[in-house]
Design a protein around this nucleic acid. Structure first.
Lengths: 159, 159, 159, 159
DNA sequence: TTTT
DNA sequence: TTTT
């Protein structure tokens, strides 16, 4: 018997990426930031503010809700569980990434507060998003943008 | 404003490693396993049981309690927060490890249920313990045991 | 948007009472005790140990699991929400009772640790159970035991 | 060993009442509302939206923070524990009230969103507050406002 | 009423 | 590496 439970309130770092599969399932992923206030220890040591980035994963019905309503900048309440999965990097070495699989979500931002790229006039999607460092996320080595990029298996799920 | 909160109930995978510093502070680290029951989806797909390994870190007073009372096999209730830290591996590449910084702990095993290496007659401490793979933990390449090993900075904290 | 979430680990004070309805639904209720350790304040004041009694309610599938597996003395992990309901006491005055509606449960006791009245040799069921004071529970005034007691509406649900 | 943990996100129903004691300690109390969304069962039954009122209690340093920053209408994140205490009502009968003793609080409203009575020009404190029904709160019978009201012992602590 |  |  065991329990694996996470509760987060934080801000969405990038517009979510959502994949729909022909089985009808869907997966949404996005980074969420939580920030600890800095403080001063009894001995005078200053502990600075610190931001933690979480790799969030939502499935199915929740992925669709994320797709419709969640945007960069939104404040969210999330419940879920911690999951670490392994993948092979380009050199074939085993790497790990820790993700939060969400099973409950509440929106804390007022509606329309962060309309996101999809609501903008230009509609230019967030291409910069893959260059954002996300804690624990597999880093891609630089690749030419000119030729079609084969799907990287390590890229297949979540991050 | 944000919240980063984790609640775990699981089993200790190895006797904790505890370091005491000359500043009087202490840090204890150990792996904790949580296991999801397997289940069957509506469409008949079998989802097997799955074990998650968490890298637990406790400091100061809590580290001392861990040192005294926590042993391999114990069932624990833990509250804490998620923290991902980076380090450089042997090739100089950036790696990430996600840890749970504990701030509240309750023992769920009956007292004396798992006396651990320190309570055994031989008292031979768990030297094999450092060779155990821990999910998301930096792996050390094989090194000669013959000469004194310099502390690896990546080894310094937690795992 | 809001969150109402409770996490309890404690001991079952009495064998659960379970009601099955002809609609197929079921409700299980039982008291759960959590105990805070006593401690000493900086100024020397002793804060004694304190036991809190929670009125637990489980429905449907969870009520059936409670019926089968939960017994007096068991240690349980529960997740749920707080709910206060009102009822009228015998004098017609409005009274309140706060209950925990459970939506997730894990058994922390080893199997068979507390077999309960139904598994005992004498099999004498816990008739005294309805006379146990439960914190916040509507108190019944003394009634004759000689004649069949009509169901009290205030007694109908949970406690 | 046990755990008694509550997590709430909701809205403050009334400006907090704060009492300072000559020992230097302080206690703040206020009602917090959480609202469950309504939903429709598989069989078509409509479950309406439902608001739950929680009796919140904060002590000492947290009470002072409440005094300074928390106002009617604010959205709060709270962590704490459930506590039911008894008191005698006017007829001498034992009554129960369930409260949430808070040990962690985060403000979810933008600063200055709800300035409260204390920040208004008139500064007329919320006299209506005692007429708000709070779930599980001891009800006061009507008393003349003309003469000084003796402290009711049941009124002494929290609510 | 539970349990440590 | 734990545990059921």
């Amino acid at each position: 018997m065991s329990v694996n439970r996470v509760i987060l309130i934080g801000n969405v770092g990038q517009d979510p990426r959502v994949k729909y599969f022909d089985t009808g399932s869907a997966v949404a992923t996005f980074p969420l930031a939580t920030t600890d206030r800095g403080y001063t220890l009894a001995n005078g040591t200053q502990i600075p503010e610190r931001t933690e980035w979480h790799n969030i994963v939502a499935s199915n019905r929740l992925a669709e809700i994320v797709d419709k309503y969640v945007h960069k900048g939104d404040k969210l309440y999330l419940e879920g569980k911690i999951r670490t999965r392994s993948y092979s990097d380009q050199s074939g070495a085993m790497r790990y990434i820790t993700e939060i699989y969400v099973d409950n979500m509440e929106m804390l931002s007022p509606k329309g507060a962060n309309p996101g790229a999809g609501a903008s006039a230009s509609g230019q999607p967030a291409t910069g998003q893959q260059q954002q460092p996300v804690a624990g996320q597999p880093q891609q080595t630089q690749q030419s943008q000119a030729q079609p990029v084969q799907d990287n298996p390590a890229d297949d799920l979540p991050f």
